[in-house]
Design a protein around this nucleic acid. Structure first.
Lengths: 206, 206
DNA sequence: TGACTTTTGTCAGTTAGTGACATTATAATG
DNA sequence: CATTATAATGTCACTAACTGACAAAAGTCA
């Protein structure tokens, strides 16, 4: 493997046997891990257990995931990065004072959409994560680590117009709102629409 | 020791030799750890190293601190809890719709005050923490873990008036603002007044 | 001093995570 | 198809953060 994640392409564009097997194995590890986490609990499941379940060596587990938490939190990181990329593709609306707020709102709504498309998976992960402090800590990090990247991108879009503290504030509050909306959405028995919930909360800021 | 933290009292109210030694040792461990973290870096410093520096066994280190991160982040946790206690002592202003916001604002300002009183210590800790992802994750957890307790307390003060989601939102945004103000305050060379900075940011919400 | 309690060190064990290297499986080429 | 190159896997050895159990040492109090 040339990277932490799955990569590498065939000479031609198509994914060879090697690639397919890798993706399959990654999927298998993830599923086996989630199943075990749910059955016996996160802390009661060792890398050894996961490795045995998919018949690989513990060493190989770490060639697919850099840590135990990452199996659980990888998708969260991915979704946040996707939100960042989405923001990057957004057309710049010049000279608007509200431009950053609007762009952020759109990005956050896009992230919400991605969550909605995989509610089941995220619900499971969230329920496991919240019970274990160390995982909860990494969950927060996964959500918030992209904040500075968002700030930099917004600053770049505006051509350095903003005062950085104000930008940080704007981004941090938006991510906080996203986080609360997510929690409420995942905690609720009712399967509310996350985007609607998020819009409510975004509006409630005044 | 009867607890994770230092505790236990003499028959009479005064702290006997045992207590004094414990507090002294805890302080010594913390100082030695911070010094080593700064010198060689957090990850390059093992519990072994810290233990040797204060001439105790590694096992004893863990009788004073539950983990390596806690040496660094204990004070953050303490300050957040103090903010919670402060909120608890605040007189209830009945029937005000803005009551929760006002109380929260006061609590957050109180936390800022505590930070200001130990700027040097927190600056050091923050600079170490931000460089190591796993510590950064626990730092965020230390800041945010008290959120639900804040919500519960505010709800209790209001007699269950609030819709929980709105309360979560209010608390989360206030903590987010605190976090950004802290970052700006600790990042800045200028030794601005944290409370002023915080007030600015609180006002910028509209 | 002597009985009682708390703290400490020692020891043995578990688990996450990493580097090195030989082995095996896939891919590319003649 | 045979061969060579390349990538994935397993094995082994190692570090480092913890944890439980227990005996030794130190502090407390009568």
């Amino acid at each position: 493997m040339s990277d932490t994640a799955i990569s590498q392409q065939n000479q031609l564009g198509q994914p060879g046997l090697r690639e397919r097997k890798k993706r399959l194995l990654q999927e298998a590890i993830e599923q086996a891990a989630l199943k075990l986490f749910l059955q016996r609990g996160y802390e009661q499941t060792s890398i050894q257990d996961i490795a045995e379940a998919v018949m690989i060596s513990p060493r190989t587990f770490f060639r697919y995931f850099p840590s135990k938490e990452e199996v659980l939190l990888g998708p969260t990181r991915t979704v946040m990065r996707a939100g960042l990329e989405y923001l990057r593709t957004l057309p710049k609306v010049q000279s608007e004072d509200e431009a950053a707020r609007m762009a952020l709102r759109a990005a956050v709504l896009h992230i919400a959409q991605l969550y909605q498309q995989q509610r089941h998976s995220f619900l499971l992960r969230y329920q496991i994560a919240r019970q274990v402090p160390s995982v909860a800590a990494f969950y927060l990090y996964a959500l918030l680590e992209a904040e500075t990247a968002f700030c930099d991108l917004l600053q770049e879009r505006a051509g350095g117009t903003y005062e950085y503290g104000q930008l940080r504030l704007l981004v941090a509050t938006h991510v906080a709102i996203l986080r609360v909306a997510l929690e409420q959405w995942l905690d609720g028995d009712v399967q509310d629409d996350l985007q609607t919930l998020l819009l409510n909360y975004l509006g409630a800021l005044h």
